[in-house]
Amino acid sequence: MNQNNEVKLLHEHYLKELKREKRLVRFSQLLIFILFFACWETASKNQWIDPLLFSSPSSIWNLFISKSLDGSLAANLSITLSETVLGFIIGTLLGTCLAALLWWSPILSKVLDPYLVILNAMPKVALGPILIVALGPNMASIVAMGTLVSVIITTIVVYTSFKEVDPNFIKVLQTFGATRRQCFKEAILPASFPTIISTLKVNVGLSWVGVIVGEFLVSAKGLGYMIIYGFQVFDFTLVLLSLLVIAVFATLMYQLVELLEKKLVKNGSR
């Protein structure tokens, strides 16, 4: 009885410690956030930094309010967001399909190996001008850009995970007389599912890069356009506002994919 009580007490103590640590971390994070913006505001107000170049949190906030009220921020944001989502979904799906094709034909994968390495090493955004001329200065070429930056790396990562599936799972299926197609469906694809989901996380970031650069080049709509426009008219408050909005939404998208990962990968596997 006595011992039980002691264990309980120790456990309570442990939980308290855990809570204390968590509070400390949260408090420090908040402190950094507030200090950063406070310093920025003060430095800008007192002309320690050039307010024309670095703007200030208060003027960004005012611009945010006015851009929100006239609806232009929401319009640009929704365009960029849908381009990014499309880009990374197409990139992931296409990359997975290409990986499946390479798995299906070992000869093809051997033949294509050096080309994949070259394509992966090449900066895909450099293809931007060609894409815009080929597909026209519209949403299609921007989505293509968002897709292009993520598709090759997805292919390589997913194909590697296909190859690393334990061959004994295939052996089990083969003794049941499974075809190559059935082996893929029953073993290769489900075993690689966690990898595919985690490339999704990487692709969120990559697609933002592709889409923003695409919008730089097309210069018609979206957050990338807001940045390039702000740069051209020397309105750095607009540039910084766009940057902050991108940061918030890229984080949100990443969290969403992480949530999806938890839901999909929790069952049984690993």
Binding site: T175, G177, P190, R270
Partner: peptide, 21 residues
Amino acid sequence: NRAENDIGYMLQQDYLFPWKT
């Protein structure tokens, strides 16, 4: 004939598929 399941094969480890019930 593999397609007719003449043969059952049991491996050193169970190799149950972890994502299947």
